[in-house]
Design a protein around this nucleic acid. Structure first.
Lengths: 217, 217
DNA sequence: ATGTTGTTTCTTGTATACGAAAGCTTGACA
DNA sequence: TGTCAAGCTTTCGTATACAAGAAACAACAT
């Protein structure tokens, strides 16, 4: 999976797209990318096809591949699905989670809190991600875990933009604690509801952010 | 999307794999497939990469691509996720569904019932699929709808094997009616729970089926 | 007899070459 | 001056050629 050139190119391109090096709507020229990476068109094509399968780019036959324009509506839809996936993970995890994992969640939350107080944004994001990934894993369903990770990763760049909103981080931390409490009690439905709201709020905040941007910009 | 040769080859291969023309674990030889389809290796490779992205085959670097072995455990995991996705669709649909769609669901259920009484297995499957697809669409979330359809399609061949169990079809029909009733009442949580159980039962039946096969076979 | 190593062959991964289709430019005509 | 058409360029899709890595097999040594 990681040996061939085309894999590395796919990784690089995905990273660059998610980081915004290529604006949405940009055409990705095979030849240019081939020159840039100092390979032939073949591995570039294969990389692009993977990105197309992952939904990051669109292929128009005989026209070229374009960086996918992710509209506000679809983004909100994706957040909604993320909320449901997290809820599902929580529901299952409430029944299956181990004591060790609960302690680990506590530890992650402590590190998360410390990072927040230290103003270490990157550290906060990392611990926050660990928290959610741990819950995915504790669902005991590997397939669900992979799907959740996939969507989480896809939404990553958009999540960053809205977490800067004042007060949100502290509130998010509190929600984390409540989620762990519900998991510890083994309350499946409450865990699910808490997680769904926890993610749905991000979507709500994002909607406001976009509305604000549309007015000013 | 549908113009090039590689797309048609990917479709054909996917169909053949799902229908069992290639046993799980079989290596798919690029050259052989190229000869078979009377094209060069290039479009075959591109088709195979799509199948890999869809999770139907596995690519081992420098080794070749192999038809993915779907173990019992992963299959159960997938059914569990399907149950959660359907539940999510139901929850959202309960709030957003239109009267026309409710009537359409009734009509589909009637056709489904008729097919059952007539012993038209294929017709039953078709209408059953329509029923679920309609609910996906009525979630009002296009992204969720596409994800649900994707997984539904993936599970299709395995669903067939277990619905033959005696009495299951009649019970399934009754569940459909209850689901429509819950949707009509706008009861989100009940709709979600009903749909989750409706799908989870299939998974349970499947588990029994596999257990039986393991003993006899 | 068995394990190891070298060789051979097969298959993948990448490069390059070629044909076809879509868009752009240029020129002519109304 | 505007519009349409023909050819020209560019880029995609496919074919073929070549290189490199892995597996199988055989031969040799222990």
């Amino acid at each position: 999976m990681s040996g061939s050139r085309s894999d590395r190119i796919a990784e690089t391109l995905e990273d660059q797209i998610l980081r915004g090096r290529f604006a949405p709507g940009t055409r990705l020229d095979e030849t240019r990318l081939a020159d840039e990476h100092e390979v032939s068109r073949t591995p570039v094509r294969e990389a692009l096809q993977r990105l197309a399968a992952a939904g990051l780019v669109e292929q128009h036959p005989r026209r070229g591949v374009f960086v996918r324009e992710i509209g506000t509506i679809e983004l909100l839809e994706m957040f909604e699905v993320m909320a449901e996936l997290e809820a599902a993970c929580g529901r299952l995890a409430a029944r299956r989670i181990s004591d060790e994992a609960l302690d680990e969640l506590d530890r992650v939350n402590e590190r998360c809190h410390a990072a927040m107080e230290a103003g270490a944004i990157d550290g906060y994001y990392r611990e926050n991600e660990s928290f959610h990934h741990l819950i995915y894993a504790q669902s005991g369903n590997g397939f669900l875990e992979r799907e959740a990770i996939r969507l989480h990763r896809r939404l990553k760049p958009f999540r960053r933009t809205q977490l800067h909103l004042r007060g949100r981080i502290a509130q998010s931390m509190q929600e984390h604690r409540e989620i762990v409490a519900a998991l510890r009690e083994g309350e499946a439905e409450r865990t699910a509801a808490l997680l769904r709201d926890h993610v749905a709020i991000q979507s709500e905040k994002f909607r406001h952010l976009m509305a604000g941007l549309r007015e000013t910009g």
